[in-house]
């Protein structure tokens, strides 16, 4: 989707605030939102659907509201969409239905243990052989599509070289539709001058992970 989230290479932003304090959270609500996102999600929500919901936030909100506010809005929207709670229940703070269960209380070590268990993997076995090999030159798709995709606009219709094969990974574009289809995934390196023209430094490069269907032999 050619949305506001696809920021790579867009002009008009900056400078970067390099003097931000180093504390992990700059407000209490940030930590609470992070923690809620670790512990509660709507059933059958995929990471790609969640990301797509965030991409669909109104452009003015996406750019102007604080970062963890966008997480709150994304999680709220995902839960209303999946029927976890209604807008009325959210606004009143009162559930109209009895709870389906109660999560257990965990202590500090319990949280550490749960955290360790969250090193999720996205590689899956597939039968089809990989189409491309390391060292091969590839051309990326010229067009995107209206759904969730991980081929950014700046890397479309560009020629790059495959530097690594990463196995077959759950394909993000389908994940956002609730489907689990694995596709071969490659790290593709693009020269900065290929992406940005002759003003870029000829020594520089940008690498992206790209699924097989984003690529054609060149």
């Amino acid at each position: 989707m050619d949305g506001i989230h696809d920021l790579g290479g867009k002009l008009g932003y900056g400078p970067v605030d390099v003097n931000e304090p180093e504390e992990p959270f700059h407000a209490d609500y940030e930590g609470r939102m992070w923690a809620i996102s670790r512990t509660a999600r709507a059933p059958s929500v995929t990471i790609d659907w969640w990301r797509h919901i965030r991409e669909l936030i109104m452009a003015e909100d996406y750019l102007n509201r604080p970062y963890f506010d966008s997480w709150a809005q994304t999680t709220i929207a995902s839960m209303i969409d999946a029927g976890v709670f209604s807008i009325e229940e959210l606004e009143s703070g009162i559930s109209q239905t009895p709870p389906l269960g109660q999560v257990k209380v965990v202590d500090y070590d319990g949280v550490l243990k749960q955290n360790t268990g969250m090193a999720f993997r996205f590689d899956r076995p597939v039968e089809e052989p990989a189409k491309f090999a390391v060292g091969q030159t590839v051309l990326t798709n010229a067009k995107g599509h209206s759904g969730h995709t991980r081929l950014p606009e700046y890397a479309r219709a560009k020629v790059g070289v495959i530097t690594h094969y990463r196995g077959a990974h759950v394909f993000a574009d389908d994940g956002a539709k609730g489907l689990e289809n694995a596709q071969h995934l490659y790290t593709v390196s693009f020269k900065a001058i290929e992406l940005w023209g002759d003003t870029a430094n000829p020594n520089d490069s940008v690498s992206l992970e790209l699924w097989e269907s984003y690529l054609a032999a060149n």
């Binding site: 991980r150 950014p152 520089d204 940008v206 992206l208 790209l210 699924w211």
Partner: peptide, 8 residues
């Protein structure tokens, strides 16, 4: 300079 864009 090598930039790594975490797209997957």
């Amino acid at each position: 300079v090598h930039v790594w864009d975490s797209t997957a």
